[in-house]
Design a protein around this nucleic acid. Structure first.
Lengths: 221, 221
DNA sequence: AATTATATACGTATAAACACCTATATAAAA
DNA sequence: TTTTATATAGGTGTTTATACGTATATAATT
């Protein structure tokens, strides 16, 4: 009980991560040892031997460069002793599934109360994991699905070229305009779009766009 | 110099607005007197005579129920003495224009550093307004445009029915499916969509969806 | 009283998106 | 080495979306 719980915060929104740092510092048993804007920054920090190793990482699911899912995959592999608490504006089932599968010990919606965050941190530190009933429910369903068949995650894996096409789609360009821009056939563009619709399980571009935003493939700024 | 600057925070993300509250409380000359999740909450608070009137409102542009633009419109009308600082994840020109036109005294991107926020608050309190060079530039261009012709803002005004249709579009429904759901003709649905494309100056649904997200007509949760 | 915005709806077109199919070359992974 | 994913590209066809009209009834505003 003597030593503080060491926290790292990873979130792309500077003002948010600095602010929540102040919130956490209010708690006497917590110490914020790092904050950064993406997974890469965190891994760089951890790679440097001189730096203080955190006990718990507050990890935003949605980030540019290296997002929460990818980061927690690497984290739980290279640093299995560091606990991960996933932070997200969405309480989407998919994200819960992925974060849990890739080693998250808790899942917090971003409109949680500060007390809930503090509570979750303490629970994770003492008991290893902490999940709210609703989240637990999602996890149980997931386990059941895993047992019955093999879990398929085509998710989160758009190729570079597909992302490129998706960006042009977002600029309201038609297939022909995209083809001209990239100097490829319209059919190829159609092929890419179709592949993306399949990968994201979307019915049409609308679904694809919304998927892209949720997964931070598309940024709004 | 004796009395503190009284701040109200309005942002739909609970954790963010509570956190930034802690950040602001670190400053000895600042006092957070209110925080709420939307414009309506703020107006209710201000309507109650017993409550402490804030000097400055930190107002998120993007909120459900009553968004930043609508709120600042009402605020600057009913409480012209209260200064407004617009907060936004986007540094879109359109938002700057609207917020400034509707009475904002400053415009802060959400990935600003905490020091910048503190600085802006102090500047607004002592000098009335504070704009960064880039933002100032947008405002100057705006003024020029205003002089040459009349400014047209069809913006921000989708009818209830249009919003209803937009939500169904987001659910990846086709025109026919939407028509069935609402028990109206496909032509009517097409009419609504066309009207929305025009109002939002979009070329196709993709633009419409992105507009809807930026303007919080579409929520991602 | 006259104007404006809204919701409704039809007709005729074209443009674009999406569904099926096949196929090849390349690079990475099992 | 064989498989798998990717990027490329073609053919054919159907379904949707969008563009151009017009029109009417209603409620709100000036």
């Amino acid at each position: 009980m003597s030593s503080k719980i060491k926290i790292a915060i990873v979130d792309d929104e500077l003002l948010f991560r600095k602010s929540i740092g102040f919130l956490l510092r209010e708690e006497k048993n917590l110490a914020v040892v790092f904050d950064g804007g993406n997974g890469e920054d965190l891994l760089k920090y951890l790679g440097n031997k001189g730096n203080i190793r955190p006990d718990i990482v507050l990890l935003d699911v949605r980030m540019p460069v290296l997002n929460g899912v990818q980061t927690s995959k690497i984290l739980s592999d290279k640093y299995p002793d560091i606990k991960i608490i996933a932070l997200s504006v969405f309480d989407s089932e998919k994200f819960v599934e992925f974060m849990v599968q890739y080693g998250a010990s808790a899942y917090l919606p971003k409109n949680s109360a500060p007390e809930k965050v503090i509570h979750t941190i303490n629970q994770v530190h003492t008991h290893g994991v902490y999940f709210e009933p609703e989240i637990l429910n999602i996890i149980m369903n997931m386990k059941r699905a895993e047992g019955s068949g093999r879990t398929k995650f085509s998710f989160l894996d758009l190729s570079d070229r597909e992302v490129e096409v998706l960006h042009l789609i977002c600029m309201q360009l038609s297939t022909k305009e995209i083809a001209d821009q990239l100097c490829i056939s319209e059919r190829t563009v159609e092929g890419h779009r179709k592949k993306m619709l399949h990968k994201t399980k979307s019915k049409n571009v609308v679904g694809l766009i919304l998927w892209g935003i949720k997964n931070q493939v598309i940024s709004m700024e």
